[in-house]
Nucleic acid binder design. Structure first.
Length: 277
DNA sequence: ACGCCCGCCTGTAAGC
DNA sequence: TGCTTACAGGCGGGCG
């Protein structure tokens, strides 16, 4: 479900709501959510720890702990983190509940169970967790120098859409934002980096930064299924500004041409056949 | 090293 | 009103 803007919105919520709090108890009820280490070890390394910071790397959330460990959260397709009071009934598919000494809980809810939580050390993050060690630059967290972007892009031969979604190229972009970025850049999903003019590379670079920043500003995209909500259960608003994603047959806001949906593999790609060349 | 396809899951909506 | 099928923000692995 969530891509960089949604995860960043949740990170900001964690910064306000759980950083500074101390973990009292941890309950793991789901069987798949904590799968990288024994559940007992996960619980033991969290209980008693104070959360000292909330970071994001691509689509991963990293909570720093005063024990020196870090708690890593990946939401997969349907994961939610929700702030709640202990007396409120837990929603269906609540798999992990973290209760704080000051009261209140952080709940991990995930119907499809693709997401996961684990506790590790900062050292192992880069080494023993390969998907985090090989993450590309994060276009919101660290501005990418233009020259470096052009260099990185031209070193790859993958078509633009799968390249944007490749987490080792750039971290945080998924199916929604790759389509939105390519519309903004006026480029088709199947162009190769080598086919781009300098001006087109510049447009792509600018579109990546602009679309992601705008989406963060509007607190991410919540689609009809309401699966993405922030810590307080509130939806985002960037879906109102989507130009192509989930707009098959609707008029392009720039040229009125109907938006086309194509299947690439098993996933949908939306684009304007007139504006995107 | 790549691109494609599947599997991992549940819920919802569309189609018959 | 069913029952069945397709599809959904991610990712890793296996295949050719």
């Amino acid at each position: 479900m969530p891509e960089l803007p949604e995860v960043e919105t949740i990170r900001r919520g964690l910064d306000r709501e759980v950083v500074g709090k101390r973990v009292k108890t941890v309950q793991v009820t789901g069987t798949r959510t904590v799968r990288r280490q024994p559940k007992k070890q996960f619980v033991k390394r969290l209980e008693g720890a104070k959360i000292t910071g909330a970071d994001r790397r691509g689509k991963y959330l990293v909570l720093r702990l005063d024990t020196g460990d870090v708690a890593v959260i990946h939401l997969g397709m349907s994961g939610q983190l929700l702030r709640a009071q202990a007396r409120e009934p837990a929603p269906k598919h609540t798999h992990v509940v973290i209760t704080f000494t000051q009261g209140g809980q952080l709940r991990y809810v995930d119907p499809r169970t693709f997401g996961e939580l684990f506790v590790t050390t900062p050292d192992e993050l880069g080494k023993e967790v390969p998907e985090l060690g090989s993450l590309g630059m994060d276009p919101v967290d660290e501005p990418i120098p233009w020259v470096k972007f052009r260099e990185m892009l031209l070193a790859r031969t993958t078509k633009l859409k799968p390249l944007l979604m490749d987490q080792t190229f750039l971290a945080g972009i998924g199916n929604i934002y790759s389509d939105e970025i390519l519309w903004e850049a006026g480029l088709r999903h199947d162009r190769t980096p080598q086919s781009l003019s300098t001006m087109e590379i510049r447009r792509l670079y600018r579109a990546i930064v602009e679309v992601l920043h705008e989406a963060v500003k509007h607190r991410g995209s919540t689609l009809a299924d309401q699966q993405y909500v922030d810590l307080h259960g509130r939806p985002g608003e960037y879906q109102l500004l989507h130009q192509v994603y989930d707009r098959e047959g609707q008029a392009c806001r720039r040229c009125r041409t109907p938006i086309v949906r194509e299947k690439l593999g098993s996933r949908s790609t939306f684009f304007c056949p007139n504006c995107q060349i």
